[in-house]
Design a protein around this nucleic acid. Sequence first.
RNA 1: GGGCGGAUAGCUCAGCGGUAGAGCGUCGCCCUUACAAGGCGAGGGUCACAGGUUCGAUCCCUGUUCCGCCCACCA
Length: 923
Amino acid sequence: MTQQLPKAYEPSEVEARWDAFWRDRGYFRADASSSKPPFSIVLPPPNVTGSLHLGHALTATLQDILTRWKRMSGYNCLWLPGIDHAGIATQMVVERELKKNENKSRHELGRADFLKRVWEWKEKSGKRIGEQHRYLGASLDWSRERFTMDAGASVAVKEAFLRLFEDGLIYRAYRLINWCPQDHTALSDLEVDHDERQGSIWHIAYPVVGSAPGSERSLVVATTRPETMLGDTAVAVHPDDPRYTRLVGKSVRLPLTGREIPIVADPELVNMEFGTGVVKVTPAHDFNDHATGLRHKLPMISIFDESARTNAEAGAYAGLDRYEARKRVLEDLGAQGFLVKEEPHALSVAVCQRCATVVEPRLSMQWWVKAQVLAEPAIAAVEQGKTRFVPESWTGTYFHWMRNLQDWCVSRQLWWGHQIPAYYCRSCSPKLANGSVDFSQAEAVVSREMPSACARCHKGDFEQDPDVLDTWFSSGLWPFSTLGWPEETPELKTFYPTSVMETGHDILFFWVARMMMLGLRMMGDVPFRTVYLHAMVRDEKGEKMSKTKGNVIDPLDLVLGAKAEALAPSLRNKFPQGMPAFGADSLRFTLAALTQQGRDIKLSLDRVGGYKAFLNKLWNASRFVLMNLGDFSLGPKPLEGRQLTLADRWVLSRLNRATREAQSALEGFKFAEAASTLYQFVWGELCDWYIELSKGALYGEDGAAKETTRTVLVYTLDRVLRLLHPFIPFVTEEIWQKLPIERDTESLMMANYPGAAPELDDPEAEAELAPVIAAIEGLRNIRGESNLPPQLKLEAVIQTAQPELRASLEKWTRYLLPLAGLSKVEIGPPGPSPAQSTAFIGHGLEIYVPLLGVLDLAEERSRLEKEIKKAEGEIGGLEKRLGNESFVARAPPEVVEKDRVRLEELQAKRGRLGATLARIRAA
RNA sequence: GGGCGGAUAGCUCAGCGGUAGAGCGUCGCCCUUACAAGGCGAGGGUCACAGGUUCGAUCCCUGUUCCGCCCACCA
């Protein structure tokens, strides 16, 4: 006896079981020595900062769909999990915790103890991230889980750094960098956001030295940062500006300090049209000014310390926060008559991506990667099609960025991260006043390990560079460091280049581009064949999810449900009773169904609910099948030699089409299309039609017909479960386990993914069933429109001029009668319609139902009038088009013919409806 | 200042040169022996706007307006 299913689908009950089942049997594990074709994806390692959000759920869903699909298709699949140490982000989180819980700073703890805390945090957070992935059903190979700071990654990082250094692609330089005064570290250009703000622009008069007293001439500069004037070392004008050419080479006296600075001509910095055409030059605190300073060999005066407080260079203004300094400078400028005016001014300020503090450009010694050199092969590889982007539109963005690369600042003044493998001799390096090594002046020795002896002084007392590497340096090595590089492992051989890099488009530059550059450099080949970039998940209104907006949805709340008080405010409104448990499958199916290319995903909770209903539908269809099987079981080659009935042939043909479409959608990364094809088949064809059509045979006498129906039902359901498994692994496994079929594997996830079988395509069957479906729908329309209860059996007359339609209807009354709720049907060629009947005309059929005194005449009249009006509207359109000579002459003949036929049909329809209406009126 | 998306039914979205589709929501009728998380039926759209190409445009082209994102050193 077949196992039965509970009446309603309960995701939490079902989903809890399968992850452990799969893992215990080792199904998620890849095999580096397998002879199957490889398919590999490395999971973009989530940051250890916290728990997963919906973006991660989308990542996991899409990658799991690909992996499960490929695994079922005979590939040796590696989907490799890992987590990222996320340098600055994690350090900040732990610092904040430390402050909150113990009211201590990291400096009070010291580097070693602080790092111990971060590692503790990493353990906890990493564990949670793993659990969350398991709740989502992600079939990751946990035996290969990695961390960007584990021993293997450290070896890889050192190796890569060393190689780049030896090749001259990593160097140290004293330059202007983005500095976060809050986090006290350098930032790369990418780690800086630009924020539009309303500020002011101030005009300040700088007196020209040597102009006649009394008629003293001034140059008026415009600036949004007046406090930086303390570090000005020139003013610049355009060489072609007639207003100022005479003054070039002279000097101005800096207000407040009285320092004399030159007037220089610079066509790059100065735009004559803008402001007064005079620009103050502060080479130590502005990128443009810095370049200008280099061009003119100007002194560079840093007036801020690491917290952006003014230092001794600021003279009387020393020791102030930069904004306080601005206030004081402006006050004094005003008091002394140098301030010409202040105007409101919209400006874009650079802020730290992590803490939103306004970034201060700062001169400092940092490590750099020569990005342009690495970019060349990365550009070429994409040009040559070795790696392609999906959607393709990202290719242009990639090229644009790659072709305009500046050198990459990779050193960070943090504690959490890979410490730079550079060492400084304590004996012969320059020292600071306090006796410690002055790293900014000392010469670095780059080495895998601490050197044993100094080449210069032969002593062996070294200190490692205290800085760490940008977190993206280690993640840039991820596709090969996780496979054992720099060792030549079997994994590397089998799985590199990886098949697909699936990630959010927000980290195209941060990560994808860096992997391309470093992969090509270190491995000599691209890190992945295809880059699929998905959209950002937003809330239903299209707003970015953020804690401050209170619209964050925790994926696990959707999966497991949550109490109202645990929800973000905007969700609490929607679910005052708490969030129901939709289950991982519902969430996964929703995310897949909403994944279009190049767009934001607005997560509609109603659609999550809708797809949960779909799972329930699938569940109940399966229940129906299982409860009607008796002791049936499906053997090998089940369809061979079967006398298939029309409905059987029809559903197999439709299944075949769905199979083909789902396959090709997946091949093109069209997740939504694949999901919706399968959805439509299951609900709209299998459930709505085949199951209904099968009931006659199923409830009838035992025998070959019943056996065949059972065969087709189980066969179709088995196929559907396989097709759907990559999308909704839990519920499909649960059902599949109960199917009475012969299996060559214990689990659906290891079963074969179905391919289309051309012999199942059956257009004749589809054509033959079409009039039956049309007749049923026509009769349902009459019943629905006339509010006739379903129990009321009707008698109908169906007339059609087409003999093949008549033949089909006559042959398949066994489908027509029960599904249309008829007690009797009369089928014939067009003739006089029955007296006092209502009509439905369409698809070549004229359907009449005698009124029998049960129908409301007025209602029937209005229904018929409405139908006639609709037909007439369409007739009008068609007549106009067919009356247009150029349409008839130029449109393809088949289009014209189609319209002619359609017009005739409609005219006939109008005629018949009109006649029917007249008879009702006459009654 | 460049670049990329988007604008289709009340909401979330498909469609992308030949009569506008789905889910949810709405309105009827049904607790029909898989499913009321359901069945059947219905209503609901000048496909942002203006031009152009075409026999024909929601779909192609141009421009405009909004929305979102990315890049850029505009004092």
